[in-house]
Write a protein that binds this DNA or RNA. Structure first.
Lengths: 360, 360
DNA sequence: ATGAAAGCGCTAACAT
DNA sequence: ATGTTAGCGCTTTCAT
């Protein structure tokens, strides 16, 4: 690869300096290494390493000399080699279902900010709400030897769980609750949300419901709990439209259109969506059809996305503190990474809020 | 680090097998290596390497034997070591201004899909429309020795450009045009867009304008060209509201509120926004104020985001093929990476479309 | 405060 | 088709 004298010990041994330009700056193709810096600065390679990693241990004068050499030859440290030597990659893998949902990208942003402030970089995996796809990515990313992993959700394949346990690195599952986490857990109960939404609407006097959902494992938990709570009030006929994840505006529009002919009985009607995006669509379609929200039809979403408060009418929804989850997950990981490696189990429920606005 | 006999050559030489459990499976803490697999399978380490990387070169029988050993001890290859040995990391760095704009996350998704299909993984950097922040991240990520880099925009610090050139890896700049790209370029002309928007609105008969923008370098190009084109028609007084990037719904709402008292003269009025998100806000605020769109006020956005077609009234905007950019950028990079490394310059303008809808 | 030697886990280049 | 040897660029350990 353009390296002169490679695999020719004699050449290297005989003329270690002549293979480079004056001052040992590597010729043309080759990238500068620690050894090059050391040669220019007139110190041992290990001293250069110390200047970079533990500058406190190096005399001021040496420090300056070495830093000047680094500058002079434009040395960029090779973290691949560093990672191999220390078996610490300073890499954290984060898995998200989708990137397009601001709720996840916000969490990702918080995680990235905190981790990169601590000197870590983030490898992103997007699994598309699919445990098999997630497994493939986990498999691939684990060969990068990340120092830690943050997952979205608690539904993973058995192989994924086994691989993660075998990797013996801290793992944080987020965005859900489960009795048997892989390691650490920061989330909230989707069952609680489903139930509370039902109670909220029942309390408001609604007895007729329509439901628009996308097929994702956590949404399904909310759905099941919602239906169960309604059943407690004798309400069992809830027409439902289900679409493939991820949610889109169009599914909301289509959902309401398909739902309308099937909604049973008389009296106040509420349509519940598993995401604000679809609730937005329902709102738009209701407007197109001349239906008044919430008089003719109440609408409730999930996520409190950025537009929810500003829609006309504003959207009643469920707010989850994604930032908070990201912060807690990153901090928990960092604590494990930085401090003593003793098993400190973490299981944290950040809760949720029903945000009452105009639509329901 | 839990490795028995480390730095004790005698111990290793004398009892290489006894340090492990039966069959050479590493004890408790240590992760399995290629050598462990080789020992279990009864072959040389290089053969295991071939089974993983060039299975075609290995006899069927050996292949099975080795794969069984891999399975048995749960071996996960160490790509860190592989990367050091080959000086190929199979890592590509992608820099985005923000993640929350679907236009970028879509492009990212396309890039990720194509690259991971080719066996690469993607390191994401989010620069927040800030060249200094981008530089810091470039600096950090280059020490991971990525095989290639994809950037958003053509505005980078001098240091960034120098670092990227020195890295001697393929670089694709996207989402803009420039006469002096760092290496390859896939984008479109923001000047063309600004100009065409002006022509479009002039042709529709508008002579009074308001402008709502966020402070990002590419948006600024569109703005400048828009104003220049208007000046060609003698229109120089265009009240403008500028907000810090990234765009938000709220800026649109606030923007229109602040703009309204200042809009000059009489006759058809158009408000132009540098993003659909803000145009959405303008639409909402116009509705709140009882202004009819487009009769009282026309609105034009940029980006053709997912909601643009479904708003009421639907949003006239500019569509840019982000997917196409992502596809071309990833493919260009892959071609450089996979085939001969000869300098194949690429400069590609994917163009744009003005999407006429109800709002203007 | 600085250095010498060995090794992290893998693969390229040469055998056989 | 498989093995041997050396080395990727860094850091650890032990010495000075």
């Amino acid at each position: 690869m353009g390296l002169h004298g490679k695999n020719n010990p004699a050449a290297i041994a005989l003329k270690p300096i002549e293979t480079s330009q004056r001052f040992g700056i590597p010729a043309g193709q080759r990238k500068a290494t620690l050894v090059d810096v050391a040669r220019v600065a007139g110190v041992a390679p290990i001293t250069v390493s110390r200047v970079i990693n533990q500058p406190g241990q190096v005399k001021q004068k040496t420090l300056l000399k070495v830093r000047q050499a680094i500058e002079e030859i434009g040395y960029v440290p090779n973290l691949v080699a560093g990672a191999l030597a220390t078996s610490r990659s300073r890499l954290v893998a984060v898995f998200l279902p989708v990137l397009t949902n601001p709720i996840f990208s916000d969490m990702f942003q918080v995680i990235t900010d905190r981790l990169s402030a601590a000197g870590y970089q983030v490898l992103l995996g997007v699994s598309g709400y699919n445990a098999e796809a997630e497994q493939k990515q986990i498999q691939a990313i684990l060969s990068r030897r990340p120092d830690g992993v943050i997952l979205t959700g608690t539904v993973h394949t058995d192989v994924s769980r086994k691989l993660l346990r075998a990797a013996r690195i801290p793992v944080v599952e987020t965005w859900d609750m489960t009795p048997d986490p892989i390691d650490m857990l920061v989330g909230f109960s989707h069952e609680d949300i489903g139930r509370e939404m039902a109670y909220y609407l029942i309390a408001k006097g609604y007895r007729r419901f329509g439901y628009v959902e996308v097929d994702d494992p956590r949404g399904a938990k909310r759905t099941a709990a919602f239906f169960e709570a309604l059943a407690g009030y004798g309400i069992t006929d809830v027409p439902t439209e289900t679409f493939p994840a991820p949610a889109s505006l169009r599914y909301g529009i289509e959902g309401l259109r398909k739902l309308l002919p099937h909604l049973p009985g008389e009296g106040p009607l509420a349509v519940v969506c598993t995401s604000d995006t679809m609730a937005h669509g329902v709102l738009l379609e209701a407007a197109r059809q001349g239906l008044h929200v919430p008089k003719d039809i109440a609408v409730m979403g999930h996520g409190d996305m950025y537009f929810a408060a500003n829609l006309v009418p504003s959207l009643t929804t469920v707010r989850v503190e994604g930032d908070q989850i990201g912060k807690l997950a990153a901090d928990a990981l960092l604590e494990r990474l930085e401090s003593a490696h003793d098993l400190k189990p973490l299981k944290c429920d950040v809760g949720f809020t029903i945000v009452q606005r105009e639509s329901a």
